[in-house]
């Protein structure tokens, strides 16, 4: 029982990483109706920018702020420069562009900052939280920031007209144009916000996993899994999904004999797929009713 409780707690604290990434995933999904395979790399690149600034002596929070702003602009720029010219290309062609971006960003980060691991500071310190060794103050801070972001997003989408316009543009672009919404700018805005949230995720994750060009690969996958599990239409669901993935992964690794430790990731994914077979829109997503 004690072990179970500890493993759940440990799961929640890794889950915070996934939750943060899942939030960024949902954000982009709302904007472009697709998963962005390059998102983890974008977050990684942002984190390197922050690292560089901090190395140059910029105070942490200022570096944080600059990174978020630069990432936002970068996200908008990627949409405008790379995707706008081919907006009518088939979706699979866009998926291929995500793969290309992934490759470009990863390679450039390796070229500029090389592949050695770097440590990244935490603004929350790393002392044990509430006297527990399983969850550190950094992880506690990460959970708090994730929940804070979630609240901000909720307020933005529910109570601002830009938020409303973004939702309308994603849900029904044709109708959105008819009421005068500039749908393609809304998409760019979605990219910017996703990049900004991704950069926050990257900066929070880096103190835990260390900074290097490949740091986000598996985290993005867990983030996808969390977002899909929670239902891609619901930011709150995605965050819960991210935590759930952390817990499932930890429990699978602990309690499934022999193969558990080796197959942590696949088992977590299988659990998720089983959930999806029974709840195809995710745990918190709204079921899609289609009529002809």
């Amino acid at each position: 029982m004690e072990l179970l409780f500890q493993q759940i707690l440990a799961g929640i604290s890794t889950g915070a990483i996934y939750a943060c990434m899942a939030l960024a995933v949902v954000m982009i999904y709302q904007a472009i109706d697709h998963l962005n395979f390059a998102q983890g790399e974008m977050a990684m690149f942002s984190t390197f920018i922050a690292w560089q600034l901090i190395e140059k002596g910029v105070p942490y929070w200022l570096a944080f702020l600059i990174t978020v702003v630069v990432s936002f602009i970068g996200g908008v720029a990627i949409e405008r420069i790379v995707f706008k010219p081919i907006e009518h290309a088939p979706v699979l062609s866009h998926v291929v562009i995500f793969i290309a971006l992934y490759s470009v960003i990863n390679s450039m980060a390796g070229f500029i900052w090389d592949f050695t691991v770097k440590s990244f500071p935490s603004p929350f310190g790393s002392s044990p939280l509430f006297g527990s060794t399983l969850i550190s103050s950094h992880q506690g801070g990460m959970v708090a920031v994730t929940l804070g972001l979630l609240l901000l997003l909720y307020l933005f989408f529910s109570y601002t007209s830009v938020g409303l316009a973004m939702r309308a543009a994603a849900a029904n672009p044709a109708s959105a144009r008819l009421v005068g919404i500039r749908v393609s700018w809304m998409t760019a805005l979605g990219w910017g916000m996703a990049a900004a949230i991704g950069s926050i995720a990257g900066m929070l994750i880096a103190p835990v996993v260390f900074l290097e060009p490949n740091m986000m690969i598996s985290i993005l996958l867990y983030g996808f899994a969390g977002a899909v599990l929670g239902g891609l239409t619901s930011p709150g669901g995605a965050v819960l999904g991210g935590f759930a993935v952390g817990v499932i992964e930890n429990l699978a690794g602990t309690y499934i004999p022999v193969i558990g430790a080796e197959l942590k990731l696949p088992i977590a994914l299988v659990v998720i797929v089983v959930v999806l077979v029974f709840k195809p829109a995710g745990l918190f997503g709204r079921v899609v009713v289609s009529r002809v």
Partner: peptide, 17 residues
């Protein structure tokens, strides 16, 4: 990796389908 990615982007630009 960057060259590969750029080649891929170039191909999709020239031949979106």
């Amino acid at each position: 990796g960057a060259v590969y990615g750029l080649l891929l982007i170039a191909i999709i630009y020239v031949m979106p389908s």
